[in-house]
Structure formats: structure tokens, C-alpha cells
């Protein structure tokens, strides 16, 4: 293992993963499991589970996880830096172009076509999380549904900071789900 290998592998993952989230998974697997053997397939599966349980993009989580396991904190830093460097360069360039040329009518028109699509993609992502939250071991998870409705009402009515709403749901879930399991 060399730090350069680590950097280059995650640089490629950062550069070639388009579309975000799960789209990056096969790329990460190819580099980390198949090519370099840094993780076994079982460890890689654990990594996906942990990524879903912790905040942050899966590509960033993977680079920190793999980096730490094979090269300590320095390894984690090198891998994470490699992973976000392509984004930093390309997106900064795009940002500069966007703020410079955003008033051109064709750019305006393109963005006008894209805005509804982005709303649709946000809705679609939200719906997949909701389906996950409402799935019970046998049928509908009523507690999940109740928490969702309560959180939605609180957000609509009082415009509460979403972070408090998510934290509140987490605390309630942490107390109520184990209680519910005991009663069953």
C-alpha cells in the first residue's frame, strides 16, 4: 500500500462517479475490493451499512473508512482529499462560468428546463426515504408514519428549524421503538 495508490484510486472514484449516492458504489467496489483488495466483500457490505447510518456522501464515507483502516488518520486524509479534489476543481470552474454567463438567454432557458426536474428528483428521493421509514417488519410501520406526519405538521405550521425536527424524531424513535419492541 502506498499513499499515492490510495490518493489515485479515490481521485478516480471522485472523477467518474456521476449522479451521486448509490451510483458511486460499483466504482468504489471496483477500486477498493476488486483491484486493490483493501477490503473484503463482507467488509465492503459493512461499509455500505455504516454509510447509510451515518451522515455524509457515500464516496466520502468510503474514502475515510478505507483510508483509516489501511493508513490511519493520514490515510483517511489522503483518500478523502483525493475523492473530493475532482469536485473542487470542476465545480469551481462551473461555478465561475455560471455566475459569469448566467444571464445568457440559452443558459437561462436551460436552467428553466432543469428546475422542475430538480424538484422532481428531490421529491423522488424523499419518497424513497419515506417508503423506507414506513416499512415495518410485517406491514406498515405505524410509529414511523406517525412521526412523519407529526414532523411534517410541525414544519408546515411553525417553520421549525429542520435540524431540530430531525433530532426530535431521532430521540422519539430511540425511546419509542425499543419500547414498542418490548410490548410486542
Amino acid at each position: 500500500m502506498s499513499y499515492l495508490d490510495l490518493f489515485l484510486s479515490f481521485f478516480q472514484i471522485g472523477l467518474f462517479s456521476f449522479g451521486g449516492g448509490m451510483a458511486a458504489m460499483p466504482l468504489i467496489q471496483a477500486q477498493v475490493v476488486d483491484r486493490h483488495g483493501w477490503l473484503t466483500m463482507a467488509e465492503f457490505t459493512d461499509l455500505i451499512t455504516i454509510s447509510e447510518m451515518t451522515p455524509g456522501p457515500i464516496a466520502v464515507n468510503s474514502s475515510t473508512f478505507v483510508g483509516t483502516r489501511i493508513g490511519g488518520t493520514l490515510g483517511a486524509f489522503v483518500a478523502t482529499f483525493g475523492c473530493i479534489l475532482p469536485s473542487c476543481l470542476i465545480v469551481s470552474l462551473l461555478a465561475w462560468l455560471y455566475f459569469r454567463y448566467q444571464n445568457l438567454s440559452y443558459i437561462q432557458g436551460t436552467l428553466k428546463g432543469l428546475r422542475p426536474a430538480i424538484v422532481a428528483l428531490i421529491a423522488s428521493a424523499g419518497l424513497s426515504i419515506l417508503t423506507l421509514a414506513l416499512q415495518g417488519a410485517n406491514g406498515i410501520n405505524w410509529l414511523g408514519a406517525l412521526l412523519f406526519l407529526a414532523a411534517f405538521l410541525v414544519l408546515r405550521k411553525w417553520k421549525t428549524d429542520p435540524i431540530y425536527v430531525m433530532l426530535g424524531c431521532g430521540v422519539l424513535g430511540g425511546i419509542l421503538y425499543p419500547l414498542l419492541d418490548k410490548m410486542m
Partner: peptide, 12 residues
């Protein structure tokens, strides 16, 4: 699991 409901509500 509880936070999933919260996240879904924020996105909604």
C-alpha cells in the same frame, strides 16, 4: 429509524 421519518418530512 426515527430520524428517517424526520428526514422524509423535511423533504416533503
Amino acid at each position: 429509524r426515527g430520524m428517517q421519518s424526520g428526514v422524509a418530512a423535511v423533504i416533503a
